[in-house]
Design a protein around this nucleic acid. Structure first.
Length: 548
RNA sequence: GUCUACGUAGCUCAGCUGGAUAGAGCAUGCGCCUUCUAAGCGCACGGUCGAGGGUUCGAGUCCCCCCGUGGACGCCA
């Protein structure tokens, strides 16, 4: 909630109380900036929303509210009725410029709110298997997840970001076998990558490092005996590489969780046992099934196969229990759309264990189709046919890639044109926003001799008013983006703020030798723009360059 | 076939719990640098919001049904 909106809401609540003896709440009032400037600085549709409760026509309600509202002339310079019953406000200058004092007083925290109320949240994203390089398809999840983590921290949540490493399943054996085969090949032996193995170039590099370390020491050892060595070595190498690539992408996790450690701590047996005690399981066809249909799943799911092994679901259930036991009140998972069918069974399992249905929220991130030479480029870790995230970053730059992925809502099917991305063209709007920041920096550098103003009565140009209003919006946008976990709202904000600044720049000269006071006031304004842009860019992991 | 998302300008996408004449970038066309960065500004062009019904003061937004696209439908992970 920004200062202006909460002020206006308070006034509307008071006005409704004295005009109708009706007690409004904050949630019932929507304040917005009208698209058309002729409708004033801010507007509300509250009169229309009250028609049912008050049994009067919206215009009549609006008229009575306005009668009350105009009394608060220290905030509102005018209030009027328009169209079907909107109330439009024009504000006093002071009301608008207060935001500059706020921003300049604590630059690093502008935009922070307490919307999250310290709620302890766990946010899991990417969690790709440690069996190959991250590719651009993972980049969307990484960009989304990291941005949402930053957003939630900014909005007052106590959020922990987490990567679940599947280091215990079948796929790790296949990775180890593939690595071993690569090693044998380097040793000059005939060796084939197993059918379910991994053909990626990363394993060749890891095998080479292994060879450099051990030479032919494992060349003549029986495969079964050396496999655990390759397994451990490969796993460590893959995980290190994951961390490095993500760090390169400016993605840092608070916690890396290991599936193996879930097993080692007997979390899996405990969870299964508890499910059995709660009578949530049954045996059939030699397997143990979980009654997920009790909680809306299409069919019951196997948790212990007839060969005695667990399915993927089982340790994952235990892992989520582990998260709850670490004290999180809410778990959020970001999954790719290809895991969509997994949502119901996992949520069902959580409920079977007695947790609240809403304690686990799973957001689906639609897949990004990779386009190369105008055609879809199918990628697969198994065949090794893929572009590594690392290569993409090197060619296109972290800023462009992160902005691109952050700027689209998670539920849109998007195309990622590899050719365009690597061209580093101006088609990516990130440069527009960064340029605005660089321009402000340039002004500030040239205007070093001036002090910033502390009163702002001369900021009355329409372009200045637009900027002031929009600066006021930032905390609302952050809060909204955090609660809805939609970082693209920050991108929209950045784009608009940059546009307002560029437009202001064209019309208003900041450094004016003939008017020191106006210069000082405008310097304060552009400093506030710089701070806000920088904070907004930080939220989506994009740098704010001083010059371009 | 079933489930689940999506379909908005030539292209990529916004559109805040239903609100005023549906927006932006790119592309296209025309203007603007002796003045703080032209990676910029201004103007123009561009739409049956996939089709059809319904709900109400009001629907791109909610409901139903078609059409199209992606994804998922394992005792794989």
């Amino acid at each position: 909630m920004n200062q202006i909106e909460s002020q206006l809401k308070d006034l509307i609540i008071k006005a409704a109380a004295s005009a109708f003896a009706y007690q409004l709440t904050d949630d019932e009032i929507v304040i917005e900036i009208p698209k058309e400037k002729q409708y004033g600085d801010y507007s509300t549709n509250v009169a229309m929303r009250l028609t049912k409760a008050l049994h009067e026509k919206p215009q009549a309600i609006a008229a009575k509210l306005v009668e009350e509202l105009v009394k608060y002339s220290d905030t509102i310079s005018s209030a009027s009725i328009a169209g079907p019953g909107f109330i439009n406000f024009v504000l006093n200058g002071d009301t608008l410029t207060d935001v500059l004092r706020t921003i300049l007083a604590s630059p690093d925290t502008y935009g922070q709110t307490n919307s999250g109320k310290g709620l302890k949240i766990n946010l899991e994203y990417v969690s790709a298997n440690p069996t190959g390089d991250l590719h651009p398809g993972h980049a969307r999840g990484a960009a989304m997840g990291d941005s949402v983590a930053r957003l939630m921290k900014f909005a007052g949540y106590d959020v922990t970001s987490e990567y679940y490493v599947n280091d215990a399943g079948n796929q790790i054996n296949n990775m180890a076998l593939s690595l071993q085969a690569r090693y044998f090949q380097i040793c000059g032996l005939e060796a084939k990558i197993p059918e379910d193995g991994y053909n990626g170039p990363d394993l060749i590099a890891i095998a080479q490092r292994f060879y450099d370390l051990h030479g032919t020491a494992y060349r003549d050892v029986v495969s079964e005996e050396s496999l655990p060595i390759f397994r451990a070595y490969g796993l460590a190498a893959e995980i290190t590489k994951l961390k490095e690539d993500l760090a390169l992408f400016r993605v840092e996790y608070d916690v890396w969780s290991s599936e193996q450690s879930i097993y080692d701590r007997h979390m899996v047996e405990k969870s299964v046992k508890k499910l059995q005690e709660l009578d949530m399981t049954y045996e059939a066809e030699g397997a143990v099934w979980l009654k997920t249909t009790l909680f809306g799943d299409d069919k019951d799911r196997v948790i212990i196969r007839s060969n005695g092994l667990y399915t993927y679901l089982t340790p994952d259930i235990a892992y989520h229990v582990d998260k709850f036991e670490r004290g999180f009140t809410k778990l959020v998972d970001f999954l790719g759309a290809d895991h969509h069918g997994y949502i119901n069974r996992l949520k069902a399992a959580i409920q079977a264990l007695g947790y609240d249905k809403d304690a686990l929220e799973i957001d689906i991130i639609q897949m990004a189709r990779m386009i190369k030479d105008g055609e879809e480029f199918k990628m697969s870790k198994r065949t090794g046919k893929a572009v590594a995230l690392k290569d993409l970053i090197e060619e296109a730059g972290v800023d462009a890639v992160r902005y691109y992925f952050a700027s689209r809502a998670a539920d849109t099917h998007m195309d990622f044109d590899l050719d365009m991305a690597t061209k580093q063209s101006n088609e990516n709007p990130v440069y527009y926003a960064q340029y605005a920041h660089a321009r402000v920096c340039s002004i500030l550098k040239s205007g070093q001799g001036y002090a910033l103003a502390s009163s702002f009565e001369q900021l009355v140009h329409p372009k200045e008013i637009d900027l002031l209003k929009y600066l006021n919006e930032f905390p609302v946008v952050v809060s909204d983006a955090a609660v809805s976990r939609q970082p693209h709202k920050i991108c929209n904000y950045i784009q608009k703020l940059a546009q307002l600044f560029h437009s202001f720049y064209a019309d208003c000269k900041v450094l004016d030798d003939g008017n020191a006071e106006l210069t000082a006031q405008r310097l304060a304004l552009v400093t506030a723009v710089k701070i806000t842009l920088k904070n907004a860019l930080w939220l989506i992991g994009v740098s704010a360059p001083e010059r371009m």
